[in-house]
């Protein structure tokens, strides 16, 4: 079994390999570290409201208190419980990123497979549109889209989706092209299977690994992007608890209360670091080359 160096070549064999790969992944401390960080963030994103000790927007005490039993991380500049806000500060950004990126990957996969497998004129047209979209700097594209779609948290979902679709098309197309040259796809073609059947049975199952990686990496990058947008006044606005906004607020008191900045920055940073360690480790273990990623 160990001599199968390209598991992706044999989808049925790959399924069996999954658990050894997982074992391989779990033997690396960096991967485990990443997995733990991601697990904590997922847990907080789902159960945050139940973990919070106070309403995130309620004024519960004097401003800028130091940590105590009542307020585990003290209070913020207007007397809201900082712990509750920190715990819930990633939910909106993660939610927006998750739905936005999922939408982007859905569209990106459809168009990427079409471009990569059908090829020809269709491929040419799709890829030129991709080139054009990707030559507009992300932030300017987002700016134009917020102009068109309005400045609202829910409007951020299509914005994120539109911004991340093009990179996804590229990655999926490249992977589809390399898959379609492999023997098992050729064999299916010789068997006379329809294009749809080949896409559904042979190509798509082999894209799941890369899709998982894309989802994780793009979500973490979208969270960063959203924090920059909030900083510029285009993203999430007050009084929603949001790490990007909290970091920005905390910047105002950084000289006297640096811990105030440290907490949300650490939360943001640990999410990004966690996702990247996890993805690196898992893709190594599952044999996805990092040069395939967009």
């Amino acid at each position: 079994m160990a001599d199968i160096s390209h598991p992706s070549a044999f989808p049925s064999a790959m399924r069996k390999l999954k658990s050894p790969a997982l074992r391989r992944a779990l033997s690396e401390p960096a991967t485990v570290f990443g997995l733990v960080l991601v697990a904590i963030h997922l847990f907080l994103a789902v159960f945050g409201p139940w973990i919070a000790t106070h309403d995130t927007s309620a004024l519960v005490g004097d401003p800028m208190q130091i940590p105590s039993w009542d307020f585990l991380m003290g209070t913020d500049q207007i007397g809201r419980d900082y712990f509750s806000r920190i715990i819930n500060g990633g939910r909106i950004a993660l939610m927006v990123s998750f739905f936005g990126v999922s939408l982007a990957l859905f569209v990106g996969t459809a168009l990427g497979i079409t471009a990569g497998y059908i090829g020809g004129r269709v491929d040419e047209i799709i890829m030129r549109i991709v080139d054009a979209m990707m030559s507009i700097p992300e932030l300017i594209l987002i700016a134009i889209l917020t102009l068109a779609l309005g400045k609202d948290v829910l409007a951020l979902i299509p914005v994120i989706a539109i911004v991340y679709t093009w990179g996804a098309i590229r990655v999926i197309r490249a992977k589809t092209i390399s898959l379609s040259m492999l023997d098992f796809v050729r064999a299916a073609e010789l068997r006379g299977e329809s294009r749809w059947a080949i896409i559904a049975r042979e190509i798509f199952p082999n894209l799941t690994g890369i899709l998982g990686v894309e989802l994780a990496v793009r979500i973490s990058s979208a969270v960063l992007r959203i924090s920059a947008l909030s900083f510029l006044g285009l993203g999430i606005s007050q009084p929603t608890p949001d790490w990007g906004l909290m970091v920005q607020e905390a910047m105002g008191v950084v000289f006297t209360d640096p811990w105030f900045l440290l907490l949300p920055a650490l939360m943001l940073s640990s999410l990004i670091v966690g996702v990247n360690f996890m993805v690196d480790g898992l893709s190594r273990a599952f044999g996805i080359s990092s040069s395939e990623l967009g």
């Binding site: 927007s57 309620a58 004024l59 500049q77 207007i78 809201r80 400045k151 006044g233 606005s237 007050q238 009084p239 105002g252």
Partner: peptide, 28 residues
């Protein structure tokens, strides 16, 4: 004024205590 988001948060919160819900929204 830079303190305004904080003031509006306080206003919305104190209204909420009396059962009055209002979304006070920041714009450029």
């Amino acid at each position: 004024f830079p303190e305004e988001p904080k003031i509006m948060a306080i206003v919305a919160e104190s209204l909420k205590k009396a059962g009055i819900n209002i979304d006070i929204r920041e714009m450029p």
